[in-house]
Structure formats: C-alpha cells, structure tokens
Write a protein that binds this DNA or RNA. Structure first.
Lengths: 212, 212
DNA sequence: GGGATTTTTGACCAGTTGGAAAAATGTTAG
DNA sequence: CTAACATTTTTCCAACTGGTCAAAAATCCC
C-alpha cells in the first residue's frame, strides 16, 4: 500500500550512475550555452546516449538544469559559510579569498553556469538570491562590520567587499578565455592562479597606494 | 561604371535608422540570452517589425551579432586607452576605475553581451582578444610597471591589476540581479553605484589592513 | 531457464527556428 | 501620372526543437 514516492531518489545503482553522467554532460553544455542555448540532443550526445534515453532519466531539460543549479548553489556558498566570527579578521578574509579562488580554479563550469543564470536575470534562482543568499550575506556582513568596529580592518562597505571578492575570483573562471588571451602563452599557463592569488592578496590587504 | 560597393554602408536615411532600431533590439535580446539562445523573431518583435523585414536589413542573425560585438568592443576599451603614462599614477588609476564603473552603469547590456561571448569561449572575439586587446593591455601594463619602478604605487602584478578592475566594475552590470537581491529594496536602488564607487576606491587605494 | 522488470531504441509529432522567394505596397523623381 | 526603386508583407521550407510512445533489447531475480 506504500504509494511509492513520486520520483525523489534514484533506486538502482545504474540509475544513479547514468544520472551523474547526464548531469556531468549537462554541466558542460549549459555552462557554455546557457539554458536556452543548450539542446537536449547536445547533452545526450555529450553523455553518450540517445535523446529518448536521456529523457528516461530526467523528465525534461528544465529538470536537469534545476537540479544542476540547486545542487551547485550549495557548493558555491560553502566558502562564505565558513567565514568565522571567532577567527582573526585578516586571516579569515584572506582564507575566504583563497578558497573562493580555488573554487574558480577547480569548478569553472559551475561558475559559468551560475554566471549564465545571472546574465539572464536569474529566472530560476531569484528566490534563492533574495532568500538564503541574502540572509547569509547579511549575517556575514554583520560579522565584518563587527571587525571594523573593533578596528581590526579598515572601515568600508561589507556588502561591496563581498561583491568584490566574488567578482575578482569568479572572473578567472568566467572570463578565462580573456585572461589566457591577454596573458599570452607564456604567462597564461597553470601558474596564472597562483599569480592571481598573490596579486589579490596584496590588493585586498594593502591596496595600491604606498603607505605614507 | 562604379561597381556599387557590395553592401558596406547603408545609403538611405531610413536604412540607417532601421538598422539602429534593429541593433538596439538585438542588444536587448543577445545580452540576455546569448547568441544561441536569441531568436530572430524575438529581435524582430522587439524592433517592432516582421522577421523577413528585419532580414531585409541584415543578411543573417550572425551579421547582427557580429556588428554589435565589434562596434561595442571599441567603446569598451576606450577607458583603458585613456590611461595616460604622463598623468599622476594614483589619479590615473582612480579615474580609470571610475570610468569603468560608469560604463557598467550606463551600458549594462553591452557588458552582458561581452560577458556572454566570454562565457562561450569568445568564438567570435578571440582574434580581438589575442590581437588588439593583448597589445593594448601589454602597453598599459608597461606603463603601470613604470609607475611601480618609480615607487608611485605598490609593486604588484599589472595584468592582474587590470583584470581586477575589469572584474569588480563589470560585476555591477553582469551580476546586477544578484547585487540588487543581496542589497535588498532599501540599498539596491540607484545609490548602489555611488556606494560601489566609494568602496572600490577605498579598496584599490588602501586595501583592508589598517596601516600599522 | 524464464518471467518480470528495467533500459534502450526507432519512429514519430507538433511547434519553432533561420532564412528564401515573391508578391504587394509604398515612395519618389521626372 | 508613372516608371524605377525601396520597403514590407505573405507564404513557404527544410532543419531543429523538446518531448512522446510502443516495441525491442538487456538485465535481474527466482
């Protein structure tokens, strides 16, 4: 009599595996072309299966995209969640910056998926932005403001501080082509992330103006 | 006998006008949905004309996109071109930052069009990136390095400095939804660009760490 | 092995897409 | 007015789109 749950979790091992393959392929395609620009055929081919076969595992293109987006928003906010009010301000912020840059390095497709969603006005994620995300940022901004009150870091706008950390780090994933093109063959290699880390740390710590 | 030029410039007044209307509409659509995600029908409707009528003024969807992209890359690089080796370093950089932020405020669609192109791996702009853009950045990076040699600004990586200015300013155009959502109704209004300007100036000048 | 179940395939469909052709409608100069 | 020209609309098309369905094939379980 148990009314087998509508369609929550995959039951067989093979289902879980195939769904992973599909999500992986979909991430490749969505992150480059965005939702509208991606086609099920493209995803199916990238996943090595036929379109109807893919649609056996996911009910629709939107369902794939939704799962990809929500599953990834969590991962995306982890570094910010770890920002600890109890830690020392400068090391905490330095560490946040570093972790965020590592995410751009290790999960560039996720970053681009998110960027695509933002460019389109966040039609599928606006609720999370105005809900969970805003709450989290409000909370962390308060922590940062506390640090400023204690004189541990220079007084400035904590929201825009967070924005600038997002912007500078994600830039290395979202605008990777441009970064590589400008740095050229010699400097555009794997070392660019270490250079970026060093530079960004300098910037956020001391800025450009020499101390008087 | 003059072999009327293939199809370079619009000749009649009305052609130029309609082409402008089309480009304007296309910018709306392409900047949100990217090249693949945009349709001629969408653009035609936004331009207030039928699809075949639109195709009377442009030979193809790609032609519209190409013209939009190249026409805009020029505008986009203007602020960097103005960076003057003869000026005082700190005011020059401050001014570059400000101009770049104004562009994000006044031309958000252009910024998103560019961002979309980058996310897709710059299929239509890679030549410009590796050519003109790289040359320009190399030149300006050399100027900045010179300023560092003179001790006028802190020594750091000039390329990543330019990247971080691009990233932080364009963020306010490309991720506008997110910025508004996080700032909320009260702070997400028109004032956000002035707040951003103030914050970014602080950041780039002095960073976060209090002077010893 | 054999029946039940899960997975895969091939054929198909209605709607959309980029674009072509051609006819119909202005517009304008003489 | 009218012929030349510019513009717009109507009609059409082949390819692609997201998605369905029934049948075939593979797998699983006893």
């Amino acid at each position: 009599m148990s009314p087998a749950p509508a369609k929550p979790q995959p039951r067989t091992r093979i289902q879980r595996e195939k769904q992973d393959v599909i999500l992986e392929a979909a991430l490749d395609v969505f992150s480059v072309h965005g939702f509208r620009g991606a086609t099920i055929d493209q995803i199916a081919e990238a996943a090595g299966m036929s379109k109807p076969n893919l649609l056996y595992y996911f009910p629709s293109k939107e369902a794939i995209h939704r799962q990809l987006l929500t599953g990834m928003l969590d991962l995306w906010l982890d570094p910010l969640r770890e920002l600890d009010a109890g830690g020392a301000p400068i090391p905490e912020l330095r560490s946040y910056l570093r972790r965020k840059l590592e995410m751009a390095r290790d999960f560039p497709r996720e970053s681009r998926l998110f960027a695509n969603e933002m460019l389109q006005g966040a039609p599928h994620a606006i609720d999370v932005l105005e809900g969970e995300l805003k709450v989290l940022v409000d909370e962390k901004a308060a922590i940062i403001t506390g640090w400023m009150d204690e004189g541990k870091i220079n007084r400035t706008d904590p929201y825009h501080l967070i924005f600038s950390i997002w912007a500078t780090t994600q830039h290395y994933a979202d605008f990777d082509v441009q970064v590589r093109a400008v740095l050229g063959k010699d400097r555009g290699g794997d070392g660019r992330f270490e250079d970026a880390a060093r530079y960004l740390e300098n910037l956020f710590m001391d800025g450009l103006r020499p101390k008087a």
